[in-house]
Design a protein around this nucleic acid. Structure first.
Lengths: 233, 233
DNA sequence: GGTCAAGAGAAAATCGATATTAATGACCGC
DNA sequence: GCGGTCATTAATATCGATTTTCTCTTGACC
């Protein structure tokens, strides 16, 4: 009888905070993560920050280069397209499985999370991405795949999505996708999914993901090959 | 002009060695990984071992429990079946993509690695799994998926396979699968793959994976719920 | 004018010690 | 005699200092 520990360890706290910063777009892709800065900001020792960042590197949110430290994952157009391809393949796979095996509770969750998403404004008054929206968006997409019945598959899909999320912020800040009706895309995905239309739902999801990438590519190509990579020179 | 670092860091060395030990079945699933032991064995400091093990935990080869240290990943029957399902879905997906998009070099590599595998004895004189075979086996399976054109997808598949590899040793040591002709399975997979028979090849791969799991399940059920988990009590 | 090399400075990697926390077993009360 | 409580012990988590490695600047040389 051992409950999951009640008191989070320092590493866990720091990990959570840095991760949130990354996903909120508070750190520029490609920029160096100086361990020293974080020790000061969070009032912990090198080791703690180091371990937290090492974990993030394992998830692919951060790039680790021996002897040269850590940097927020950079994204070249090539890498972005590989990421997108992997996401499309794996997320549509998970969605197919969900549609095949998902139960009523899953269906209900899809509807509920979509309703929440639909009722959340995407941008704040000053034009930034609303934190609420980010959360609702992720929750909705997670719900879609939650019926697949495989914790591993779900985890993999979520990990890939988080990698992409790193950059979604940057594209949305700069390349307002005026020509998209994102709400409609979400609605279509939700409706086709609960209607158990496997082909339709996966197609809608694929297009949704690919449109987001297209916007990202436009952004990356306009900004240059992403803020200086740790290597590239 | 920055080449990949020539001199491996201590963490990297320790990481590699522990990882190899895990994959070679030198550490019993579920057993605790005492940091202190490793510092003595490898002549490095706590921090180094800790970081190496943290990385392994990120890959799923090791379980980390706050305040209670690290243990070799345990495998319940449930978790094993989830792992298998994820592997089947993702490896067959990657194989399909390979068959669709793989080029001549990929085809050649499949044939070459299969030939090597076919020419390598599985067990040593004393009945253990031959290290050569383990390497050849992994190389072959990697080659199958290498044509999929997505480094990410390939990496994910490899990661899942490594997780399973952790236990393959234990099943093979104890449950000699007399009723299987593993060589024939590999041959079928290789032939169907180079023949670009997508349905056939993926079916053969799926059955190959599922047969291995069946043997593992027999082993786990016979041995009990795997050598005492860090939790379970 | 440009290239390359030496040196100062900054950052990462590693270490050994300290503070916390969990596991172990003896001890006491019921 | 049994269950529970409290010291003891072992291992983890954290820290701050030291060593090693890279980076950037400066200046000599081609």
């Amino acid at each position: 009888m051992v409950g999951p520990p009640v008191k989070p360890t320092r590493v866990q706290e720091v990990y959570d905070r840095i991760r949130a910063s990354l996903l909120n777009g508070e750190l520029e892709p490609g920029s160096k993560l100086k361990i020293g800065d974080f020790t000061a900001r969070y009032g912990v020792s090198l080791s703690v920050v180091r371990e937290a960042v090492t974990r993030l590197a394992g998830e692919g949110l951060v790039e680790a280069t021996p002897q040269r430290g850590f940097a927020v994952a950079t994204l070249t157009v090539d890498a972005l397209q590989d990421l997108t391809r992997a996401r499309v393949l794996i997320e549509t796979l998970a969605l197919s499985e969900s549609i095949k095996f998902g139960d009523l509770a899953w269906e209900s969750a899809v509807l509920a999370t979509h309703h929440t998403l639909a009722g959340t404004r995407m941008t704040t008054a000053d034009g930034h991405v609303a934190p609420d929206f980010t959360v609702a968006h992720r929750t909705f997409h997670n719900a879609l795949l939650a019926g697949c019945g495989s914790a591993r598959l779900e985890g993999i899909a979520t990990g890939l999505r988080d990698c992409a999320e790193l950059y979604r912020h940057w594209s949305q800040e700069f390349a307002h996708e005026a020509d998209r009706d994102i709400a409609a895309e979400h609605r279509a995905i939700a409706e086709l999914t609960v209607a158990r239309d496997e082909a339709g739902a996966t197609r809608a999801l694929r297009e949704h993901i690919e449109r987001t990438t297209a916007a990202l590519v436009r952004y990356v190509e306009r900004t240059g090959p992403a803020p200086t990579s740790a290597y590239s020179a």
